[in-house]
Design a protein around this nucleic acid. Structure first.
Lengths: 233, 233
DNA sequence: ATTTCAGAAATTGTATCCATATTCTTAAGT
DNA sequence: ACTTAAGAATATGGATACAATTTCTGAAAT
């Protein structure tokens, strides 16, 4: 659940670079170099290159023709795309989980939903300054539980490595209290659908859950509703 | 549309290893080593390691706990999973293509469907010994056209890593003539839906198109899920 | 002044080397 | 005979060295 403190240098480099890109501390308006990143991290180029390879696949870095390596943050349009993809894949995961989760897994999902409700209640009472982080972790845990219960290794890899969860939690951080209450309600609905083995209900609720997050993101970052006329990004 | 011979050693290593795994010329019942693969390809470990990194992400290689590197081919259950994922992602691509394809792209999709029909007709007349390959290429081209028209770079990357795994397995199977005729019909339907901008129709037809392929695959290779008996080839 | 060519600098791709961790083998002890 | 421990062999992760391609700079020629 938490990052094990010491992994390989490659893993550390990957996480550090990803965080640096997502937090905006790496420039997106000029090119970066492998050597520069390596010396910034205090490592040789070898592990940094491996990390760069992963980030290239995930799309957070790009090699532009004849002008080096660039950090790339998803445009609002791409964020919408990411949410749409997640809605489709996670609803599939929810349906599979409803069909094949073990009894313990169904119980665990329900308990996660319960905990989430308590966290949100605590947030309303301002009783815990650290509660926002707890909510985010609980949310990630909930989705991970379902993904595991879905018993779908390929789906898991796709969701984990290519459409980054960090984007979603970025959105979650800005939820209003009302949104959080409703989001916790979604978790309850999904948990119940999975517990009862109702795949279609689970899938549609998960879809709605993620599209709600997408809508919230759109509101925040000011991309008005999708215009029929094509805006090239 | 084909690989130019000149590329970086890493790319060559990646392609060679991927082909070797998918074609079954690398063992899946005992472990392989980086050093062994490198000397097999006549390269140093460095580019081979980069290639291995990509294959690990794609799931064609796995590091098993404390016992090295293994080649992994998708099980029939995973193939079903891959088809399900493709059905969801490519139907999304079709919907987006219906909404935002250019006039030229809509025309190109229709023309590809036309060519496919002609190829299938030629197949019926046995007039071209090479026709099966042509059909495969046209099919790949059709799907690629739609993916490009969808204007969704993330989706494109995501599908690229899942599709080609499915494709190689697909080429192992032989569609019956009747199936090919119906498949070409799907292409026409999808092309028309996209041409008319009818996103929902395009999406549902694409979904059905891929699930039909999945069913055909299951009949040949899968554990017969719930089919009482399979039909004649 | 603009263009072009050459040399220099820099960046990426590849190979080799080293260190650490893990496995396999062998020998010793109970 | 079986178990365990120690050392050897092997494999992987990382660093450095090297090569080749690409880019930048500058000067010369039209």
């Amino acid at each position: 659940m938490e990052h094990s403190k010491s992994a390989t240098s490659t893993d550390r480099a990957y996480r550090q670079l990803r965080d640096a890109i997502l937090s905006g501390s790496l420039p997106t308006d000029r090119k970066v170099t492998e050597t520069g990143l390596a010396s910034m991290l205090g490592l040789s180029r070898t592990p940094v290159r491996a990390a760069i390879g992963r980030l290239l696949i995930e799309g957070l870095l790009q090699r532009r023709s004849g002008s080096g390596l660039w950090c790339v943050l998803p445009t609002p349009g791409e964020m919408q795309e990411i949410f749409d993809i997640r809605a489709r894949l996670e609803s599939y995961a929810a349906a599979r989980a409803a069909e094949r989760a073990s009894a313990e897994q169904r119980e665990a999902v329900k308990q996660s939903a319960e905990r989430m409700s308590r966290h949100v209640a605590a947030l309303a009472k301002r009783s815990d300054p650290d509660i926002a982080r707890r909510i985010e972790e609980e949310n990630a845990f909930f989705h991970r539980l379902i993904l595991e219960a879905a018993c779908a290794p390929r789906l898991e890899r796709l969701l984990q490595s290519t459409v980054d969860v960090a984007f979603v939690s970025l959105t979650l951080q800005r939820y209003s209290l009302g949104q959080r209450v409703r989001s916790a309600g979604h978790h309850h609905d999904i948990a119940e659908a999975i517990a009862l083995g109702m795949a279609e209900w689970a899938a549609r609720t998960m879809e709605a859950h993620i599209l709600a997050a997408a809508a919230s993101f759109r509101n925040r970052y000011g991309v008005a509703a999708e215009t029929p006329q094509d805006d090239k990004a």
